[in-house]
Design a protein around this nucleic acid. Structure first.
Lengths: 195, 195
DNA sequence: AGTTTTTTGTTGGACGGTCATCCAATAAAG
DNA sequence: CTTTATTGGATGACCGTCCAACAAAAAACT
């Protein structure tokens, strides 16, 4: 059913298929043909909507980051104090959407290939900077700048680190657990800052 | 110069070449031929000392873990108190050897491909368990079991998370910085446990 | 000691398979 | 009738693995 405006539809469709294929077959075996097959279209169509495979993968990671960003912004709305907003950031990082097993695989693939792709590396830096800036904006209200920077780096690292473990061992039994550990770190450090 | 006992020499040589090649060309482009070329030997030799490419990669990761373990054990010797031993673990995780850019690449590749390989997944779990057990052994002397487990998980995650960032952005200007952040987390949490 | 035989190390290319990309052909929509 | 969507296969490149052949050291033998 060839119609105009297929571009947006097909691109989303292929991005979703890419995530699913990376999850099911692994990054190395996520071939153009397999992704197209998962999407239910022919292999040729991929290069009709994406310049090459790299662009499809880039769009895939981009979509995941956008999802995380939407989630974070959304949760920020219902937070009043700096503490609540930091908790909202932590919550978004460990939300159900992020704990989708399919996202695990794609995210890991990103880490595994970021070093070779300038585009992917830039995307990851964007994520890091965004997380750091979001945390800093609230932390500076609670402590001096130097402490804030260290704590923002620590919280960011802990989120990624915990996340990494679940990406390898599967969803945590209790999704609140990683949140609790991260929050405890924040509270303990912020508490000391007050003394 | 064919002599007996080449096996140990060639295997180490190829493992080193594998790390270097993964670093220089990326995991996906670390082909058998390229690794062999880096090692200065012909491509055929690889299958003379390793069953297949997978075994070479497995041996490569194994060697990196062994190096980390040696470093950790070594630093433990000069540590007397639980606190010092925990600091030794943190120190080993952020040692100069670990901050080798080549090791970054290979480690990241491991994460990016662990999901597809049972052998690699087992290796990563071994690393996680070992780190967790090492931390737990000391933490239980300072606080109750439940707090120890959470803190051990948090410290482990923070080490991996900080590490991940440096793997993408390069060596930290000040190698003591990630150690300081991790130690501060430990001190803040252990301090609260005493109150 | 010198010579042959065996073992071990090493090479470079052949083979079969896989993959990204390209393209000619087809078809429906505007 | 032009534009857009889509197909499925052709093409050329690359890669892991295998293998026949060669080389040198070690062992066995005379």
């Amino acid at each position: 059913m060839p119609k105009v405006g297929m571009k947006a539809i097909r691109r989303k469709q292929l991005v979703q298929a890419a995530i699913a294929t990376i999850h099911q077959h692994g990054f190395a075996r996520a071939t153009v043909a397999r992704i197209a097959h998962t999407a239910g279209v022919s292999s040729g169509i991929v290069h009709h909507y994406f310049a090459d495979k790299d662009e499809l993968l880039f769009a895939t990671i981009w979509e995941m980051l956008a999802e995380l960003r939407r989630d974070t912004v959304d949760r920020q709305k219902h937070a009043a104090s700096p503490r609540e907003r930091i908790n909202a950031i932590i919550h978004a990082s460990f939300s159900d959407k992020q704990f989708d097993e399919q996202v695990f695989s794609a995210w890991l693939a990103l880490y595994g290939n970021a070093r070779q792709s300038d585009r992917l590396k830039r995307l990851l830096r964007l994520y890091h900077r965004r997380l750091h800036a979001n945390l800093m904006a609230e932390l500076v209200k609670l402590m001096d700048r130097e402490r804030s920077a260290d704590l923002a780096e620590g919280i960011g690292a802990m989120i990624d680190g915990l996340w990494l473990r679940y990406a390898l061992t599967g969803r945590p039994d209790n999704p609140a657990h990683p949140r609790a550990i991260t929050r405890a770190y924040f509270e303990a450090s912020a508490g000391f800052a007050h003394l």
